[in-house]
Design a protein around this nucleic acid. Structure first.
Lengths: 183, 183
DNA sequence: CACCTATACAGGACTACGCAAGTATCATTT
DNA sequence: AAATGATACTTGCGTAGTCCTGTATAGGTG
């Protein structure tokens, strides 16, 4: 959890300098399946990066529109990013509201329990469909004979999608198993 | 995310009245695989429940030790719990620091990427072993001919463990697939 | 012409949470 | 005799995050 939005911003700024506004859109377009951030939180975190010397602002005047405050990653920022990427992963403490619901819903009886499981099933199916369509586009837009230097990065971005897909499938398998176990 | 610790506390207090201290231990013993909470956060949230009329305190003097401030769920608390259990599940916005790491680690090259995946593998194996041992104890301690009124609750508590196990297995399967994909 | 959307940012109010330390006493262990 | 661990709760500090509102202006749509 710690520092993760800072890292997300540094990681994206490492690919290209951009404004807070651009970052918000970039997050929605590329890492939304495993991370999300509020607009105001992005601006605040960006200000923190600048304060820490990890990013710098280049003001680009525009007419009509507000100035672009384009943020560039600094060498210190790149070092902080790389340090974090190589640091040990702290095992995350789980917070799963759905499992909590299931844990306690038994007192309301079998019909209420089934309703909770059905709702989860709908969500899992929607999630799976969303991930699959993004993954297909990813496969389609890919050059057939890609020997580009960012080939590793592309494979890894695809792998994060596959992760979501396999977990969504596991969730559906678990839902079937659990439905059976309720008789 | 919202209200979930309140719900966890109400859910546990619905089974038996207890102190904040007891709640901390109860959470560690029963829902730790999908929820965790800091001690001070438990006390704060408990105070909020009392302020909202969802729980009441019964002070039980003890000699030597501090008084037990035993918290009991109120009818309003039970109603709030049941309302939440029947409310629609808000789809959770994901925050997965590991996938973020993987997404950006490509710039550091294949060896650093493999290191990240290996670390994840160790964690997944440890997680799986932990869940399996809890699940086995659960199976063993269970009465063979259980027709108790809380049979549904017991099955659901077991189902939350199975959920964790299936996801840990899915994670390992994904790790194997991803390792292959890196060549 | 009114409304909506996009671009671009700022700031307050609030919730949730974790870490750390402090207060107090008894029982057990070294 | 001193350290530790269990019971039981409190307080302060800092981080991370959301929601909502406000400030501008340009361009397109009904």
């Amino acid at each position: 959890m710690y520092m993760s939005l800072k890292i997300a911003l540094l990681g994206i700024l490492d690919l290209a300098p951009m404004t807070g506004y651009d970052l918000k859109k970039s997050i929605e377009a590329s890492v939304a399946h495993f991370w999300s951030a509020d607009q105001s939180q992005i601006y605040r975190t960006l200000a923190a990066l600048v304060a820490d010397g990890l990013a710098e602002v280049e003001v680009i005047p525009q007419d009509g529109r507000p100035d672009r405050r384009e943020h560039h990653i600094t060498p210190a920022g790149r070092a902080a990013l790389n340090d974090w990427l190589r640091s040990p992963l702290e095992p995350e403490t789980p917070h799963d509201a759905f499992l909590m619901r299931l844990f306690f819903v038994g007192t309301l009886g079998v019909p209420a329990t089934r309703a909770v499981l059905r709702a989860r099933r709908s969500q899992a199916i929607a999630m799976l469909a969303g991930l699959r369509s993004v993954a297909e586009q990813d496969q389609t837009h890919r050059e057939p004979d890609d020997r580009a230097p960012d080939d590793l990065g592309r494979r890894l971005r695809f792998a994060t999608l596959r992760n979501g897909i396999l977990h969504a499938e596991a969730e559906l398998a678990w839902l079937n198993e659990t439905k059976e176990a309720l008789g």
